[in-house]
Write a protein that binds this DNA or RNA. Structure first.
Lengths: 339, 339
DNA sequence: CTCCTAATACGTAACGTTTCGCTTTCCACA
DNA sequence: TGTGGAAAGCGAAACGTTACGTATTAGGAG
């Protein structure tokens, strides 16, 4: 039914090898080029990707394993990547593993079986065990947002400087006279959570201060989580004067909790949020935010994986790229020193 | 390097055809079964999907074309589908087309070239032109959430009863004595927008009422959009006494706008929102909501596409499945008749 | 101990490309 | 008109499966 290169060869009187060469961008005599193009049109020829894959062992497909599809930070990165990769004719297979290590392992092995040319992973499992099958199969890997220590040197990674981000935000608050700063984090076994806590602690240390234990709340990077954590902080006997919330969804939830408790920002509570300036720009004008370069992350990841896939087995190319965040100062914090 | 069935055949002394049969679940003499299994383990044999695809013309892959990845309703459906399909060994390629008809067309043709076995689409283009290449290639199609009229009979579809959903919500408000009901819709060229507006108008008609034109606000299914639309409604000279918002993101934005304007629900404004009861359950307890069966939609779509892919060219199997929504009555509306 | 019939096993030809190693053609220059 | 070298074309052998049609085998019945 569907035409093959053989048909094109027969119709044009040319050899099979010539057709193949043309299809792959090789040069062909002008009159033959026309001949081929006409035949392609007439027979509605489309190259069979299966046969091509069999010969080249390339699927022109990359796998993406992420913890949650319902997370704005993640989807915005995926959208950017998908765009870039598709432009290079790569398809993207997304596997949501629901922050579950078992599912994550299964997803990786599934993708290895599907013979993806590259793998992008926002790791749930910090041991890196789940990536072994891919490593063994020689599939290039790019980690996103979360480093996996044991894999250093074997994979590339694109992360932001989480320590610096949290340190900047916390320092800014301390310099404004706050000493009781609430911190809302994600799950405590996640890379970014650990780094952001480190940054917070660093800032305190810089000023020779120690934060109260109960101000540090581990949550789960969801809106509900942020809402609940903020409620807890509000109801503390000694309520913090400022709060720093470390992702988008939780920032949303926390703002709702504040609204509901009739606490005005910054009059009753200083607030620093995370991500998505544009959105908050419309809804909560003037919020002070840590901004991650989401588009840059997506682009950077896409570039890395394309580079690794192009260079056959260039293990030496692995690198860790750290992108900077910015502290976008708005009006949601109060300076306690100048009342 | 990687072992092939030929290697297994050589090692076991069996024929190639026998190995193939075993690999596809055929029966083999017990001792041969053991022989094969041992050899598979020893050689770490993994069947080559490329060769398999070439022979069977099946990619065990389905394509999904959606308007926006950053939309909770969509991602929750995708997550459910992805789960089910992966259990059946199908990979899912997601293409976000940013609610752009051109991108959508490109995505479909990209997926056709990749030879997906099935296509799932939440259409942006209401003409259905974009699906022609898939139709011609004989790829089964399941539409989600949005019907495309011209394709009736040629594709399957899973939608919710949008007219009924909006009618129920609006009727409920009218029966509570409201006559000025604000309506916040998505982009006016989208299927669900049209249906939900129809439902709203139906309810008005039932009571022989006519809504004021300026109460119907077309927006864009984003949080910012919902926020802006609600602000507009609030600032109307003759402010509505109730508002019905028709998706999750806009509901969130609208609630924030209400909070900001210091309007209490339901004292100053009756409110009916959309989707995600569980989330609002934590954050805005007692909100009256139209609830779509998101999991059921995902499951239903997965089942449909699996069925269509299993039955070769069973065009007669196409059907439109309409799922019901429920009106989840909370306490966010006020009965004006009993003050 | 043979014969018959299921049940398994087998050889081989596809599937539609890419690629290797040549051969042929083209064209410029003498 | 002849020659040389570059450019383009060619045939055939893979790549690793599946499936068709036939050949072989096991094991109970006679």
């Amino acid at each position: 039914m569907a035409a093959t290169m053989k048909d094109i060869a027969r119709l044009t009187g040319l050899g099979l090898a010539t057709i193949s060469k043309y299809m792959n961008g090789g040069t062909v005599r002008p009159k033959n080029k026309k001949l081929i193009e006409d035949a392609v049109k007439e027979l509605r020829f489309v190259p069979n990707e299966f046969a091509r894959s069999l010969k080249t062992s390339l699927s022109r497909t990359v796998g993406v394993v992420i913890p949650e599809l319902g997370n704005q930070f993640i989807t915005s990165i995926i959208t950017t990547m998908d765009d870039m990769l598709r432009k290079h004719d790569y398809a993207v297979i997304v596997c949501d593993c629901r922050t579950d290590a078992k599912r994550e392992r299964e997803a990786v092995s599934f993708l290895v079986h599907k013979r993806v040319d590259g793998l992008i992973n926002m790791s749930t499992d910090q041991s890196g065990e789940h990536l072994k099958p891919a490593l063994e199969a020689g599939i290039p890997i790019v980690l996103v947002d979360r480093m996996v220590k044991p894999l250093t040197g074997k994979v590339s990674a694109v992360v932001v400087d989480n320590v610096d981000a949290a340190e900047k935000a916390t320092r800014y608050l301390i310099e404004s006279g706050h000493t009781d700063i609430g911190l809302v984090l994600g799950n405590d076994c996640i890379y970014t959570t650990q780094k952001r806590r480190d940054g917070y602690l660093n800032a305190y240390a810089e000023f020779s201060l120690t934060p109260r234990e109960e101000l540090i709340r581990f949550s789960d990077y969801t809106m509900e989580g942020g809402y609940a954590a903020m409620k807890r902080l509000i109801s503390l006997p000694q309520r913090p004067t400022a709060v720093f919330v470390t992702n988008f969804e939780m920032t949303l939830g926390a703002m709702i909790a504040l609204n509901e408790a009739q606490l005005r920002v910054p009059e009753n509570m200083s607030f620093i949020g995370f991500d998505k300036l544009d959105l908050f720009g419309a809804v909560f004008p003037n919020l002070t935010l840590v901004k991650q370069p989401q588009n840059a992350i997506g682009e950077c990841v896409a570039k890395q994986i394309l580079r690794l896939m192009a260079d056959p087995h260039a293990d030496a190319l692995h690198q860790i790229i750290t992108l900077a965040t910015s502290l976008n100062v708005g009006g949601s914090t109060r300076d306690l020193r100048t009342p």
